[in-house]
């Protein structure tokens, strides 16, 4: 998975997501989850622990949606006349709950399918590679590409600065919770200053947002990138039409 071109991989997964949002099939959702997991576990270098860490919240969300769906569906999947003709209350309740359970499974599996697609991209793609391929395949200007990279690499500094600001406030006798906005403000003031400094440093090293430059590594699109796109999309499209549930 890591060898695929990040840009084209992103496009494939985005298209899959779009198609998925128009389909309504538990089997298709299940299939996507299974395929994503198989690709992640056997065809990528993704670490199991980080995979679990990301998927646990998604799973919690799916479970909660499952119960919401089961308890609060309107039950419109079955025509009301059909139900009212049946005299037995038990059967009515049962048919209602059958549709609710189906709805609930449908909704929750959908969440997991989207999560699977997202994780498949996120865990097999290096941020730097992705930005580079945006530059080469998508003609993103170097100005934006390297700007994003610089900001990305400043993150550890920003995190440290935030911790320092929180400590400074605490020591001044001002209670700080993880949601206090004041330290965030102090940190933002700093980062605005920083961005200017970094930009000047980049420029003094000859960086020119639009001018000519050479590239050490150029990401390219190979035949198997197109294959990945074609196979995933065609599988998904046929899945939407063929799978009944």
């Amino acid at each position: 998975m890591e060898k695929l071109n990040p840009f084209l991989k992103g496009v494939s997964i985005l298209v899959c997501g779009l198609i998925l949002s128009f389909s309504y099939s538990v089997l298709l959702n299940g299939g996507i989850i299974a395929v994503s997991l198989i690709l992640l576990l056997f065809f990528s270098k993704a670490r199991l622990t980080s995979l679990v860490k990301i998927l646990v919240p998604a799973f919690v969300a799916a479970v909660s949606i499952f119960f919401t769906g089961m308890m609060f569906t309107s039950g419109s999947a079955i025509a009301p006349e059909a139900v009212s003709k049946v005299e037995s209350l038990n059967f009515e309740v049962m048919s209602y709950s059958m549709t609710s359970v189906y709805n609930a499974i449908q909704l929750s599996s959908r969440i997991l399918a989207f999560a699977g697609l997202g994780v498949l991209f996120a865990m097999t793609t290096d941020g730097e590679e992705f930005v580079k391929s945006l530059m080469h395949q998508c003609r993103l200007k170097p100005k934006y590409a390297y700007g994003v990279l610089a900001a990305f690499h400043l993150l550890p500094c920003i995190r440290e600065e935030f911790a320092k600001a929180q400590m400074a406030f605490r020591v001044r006798g001002i209670p700080v919770t993880p949601f206090s906005m004041k330290p965030v403000f102090a940190m933002l003031v700093n980062t605005v200053h920083w961005s200017e400094h970094v930009a000047m440093a980049m420029e003094s090293k000859g960086f020119d947002g639009e001018g000519a430059r050479t590239y050490y590594t150029v990401t390219v699109i190979r035949w198997y990138d197109w294959c990945f796109l074609a196979v995933t999309v065609s599988l998904l499209v046929s899945g939407t039409f063929l799978l009944p549930f």
Partner: peptide, 8 residues
């Protein structure tokens, strides 16, 4: 020293 680099 912290603000002169754009790569890691």
């Amino acid at each position: 020293p912290d603000l002169q680099f754009c790569m890691d």
